[in-house]
Amino acid sequence: MVSDDDLFARLRSYEGCPAASGTGRYPVNTAMISHWCEVMGDPDPDATPDPAHEGPTAVAPPAMLQAWIMPGPTTAPGAGPQRSAAYGELLALLDAAGCTAVVATDCEQEYLRPLHPGDVITFDSVIEQISPRKTTSLGTGHFVTTRTEIRANGEPAATHRFRILKYRPHHAADASRRPRPVVDRDNAGFWEGVAENRLLLQRCTACDRLRFPWGPGCPDCGSDRWETAEASGAGTVHSYVVVHHPPHPAFAPPYAVGLVELAEGVRMISTVTGAGPAELRIGMPVELEFARAYGPGDAQQLPFFRARHQRDSRQDAPCREDAPCRQDAP
């Protein structure tokens, strides 16, 4: 087993190595400035023009600096900003040491000149510092700081420092502490279907709309008349979030929660299994499976969705009373 001192020495050997480099996906532009300002509650991005600038007077708010250098959630490998091999090795080394969870801790930015529409942004990041082993309320691990030098049209424009904590959570997940579903008169039929390995939707008999989650009336026409329709179980990932923080005693971060669009057109939120958080993609095909998620001896089942290309043939076998089902869903 590698000692803490040996691990720290190996981690520190990456200090000064490149972390990432690239060119921003888009030049600085007024559309992104306007969207960012609207989200932040500032409706006038031209409120602080730069009279010394001969071109467009709009100035990108300094605090949106990261918006110009971040890759998109579906950026293809080899396109856009690229993480270095050294940074990937560093994270893999921490993962191997049990520091599989991550949380962003702080960010520092220094602005050297305003950014204007039309500026082309390039950048280079280095692994600046790795801390000794630290114990926090989340767990034990190491702080990793990267420093990014940002240029606009080749001129120094800003310095960005970003710090994360890669850590080993204090406690393993306890499946018995998973929140239990609330069953009431409006959704009891859905949970009866789950107990029979069936995913039941509601269909309004007045306007024929399918709906989920279950409810007493149709959101389109208001009718309270409905029937059940069984979903095929096929779907795609419409959106997802990878949860790192806050911690919950029933789940071991990082884990993924997906918004799955079923083949029938309705959407539901569920855990996505069979693919690591870094492998998830919008549009990824998934298929339904049922599993007992509260530990041996608890008959309560939940519906999950497994990445279709990672389907495990053992999932086809029904759960037996004398053996717990697989617990690979958080």
Rank of each mutant, 00 (worst) to 15 (best):
P117W: 03
G118E: 13
G118M: 10
D119R: 07
D119G: 04
D119M: 05
D119H: 04
D119F: 04
V120L: 07
I121W: 00
T122P: 06
T122V: 01
S125L: 02
V126A: 01
Q129Y: 08
S131K: 03
P132H: 00
P132E: 02
R133K: 13
K134Q: 10
K134C: 09
K134I: 10
T135I: 09
T135H: 14
T135F: 02
T136D: 02
T136Q: 11
S137A: 15
S137P: 07
S137W: 14
L138F: 11
F143K: 02
T145K: 02
T146N: 03
R147Y: 01
T148Q: 03
E149W: 04
I150G: 01
I150H: 08
R151N: 10
A152W: 02
N153S: 11
N153R: 00
G154A: 09
A157W: 06
T159I: 08
R161A: 00
F162E: 05
I164L: 07
L165Q: 01
K166E: 09
H170Q: 02
A173N: 02
D174F: 08
D174T: 02
A175R: 14
R177A: 13
R178N: 10
P179V: 09
R180P: 11
V182R: 14
V183L: 05
D184Y: 01
D184P: 05
N187W: 14
N187I: 15
A188R: 14
G189L: 13
W191C: 03
W191I: 03
W191S: 06
E192R: 12
E192A: 12
G193S: 00
V194I: 07
V194M: 10
A195W: 00
A195S: 00
E196M: 06
N197D: 14
N197R: 12
N197W: 03
L199G: 01
L201E: 04
L201F: 02
Q202L: 05
R203C: 14
R203S: 14
T205H: 06
C207W: 11
D208K: 08
R209F: 12
L210Y: 08
L210F: 11
F212G: 12
W214H: 15
W214G: 09
G215I: 08
G215R: 15
P216K: 11
G217R: 13
G217I: 01
C218T: 07
P219G: 02
D220R: 11
D220N: 12
C221G: 08
C221D: 12
G222N: 00
G222W: 05
D224E: 14
D224T: 15
T228P: 03
A229V: 15
E230H: 03
A231C: 08
G233N: 08
G235T: 15
G235L: 10
G235R: 05
G235S: 11
G235K: 07
T236H: 11
T236K: 09
V237Y: 03
V237C: 04
Y240S: 04
Y240N: 06
V241M: 05
H244S: 10
H244C: 14
H244I: 11
H245M: 00
H248R: 09
A250W: 15
A252R: 11
A252C: 13
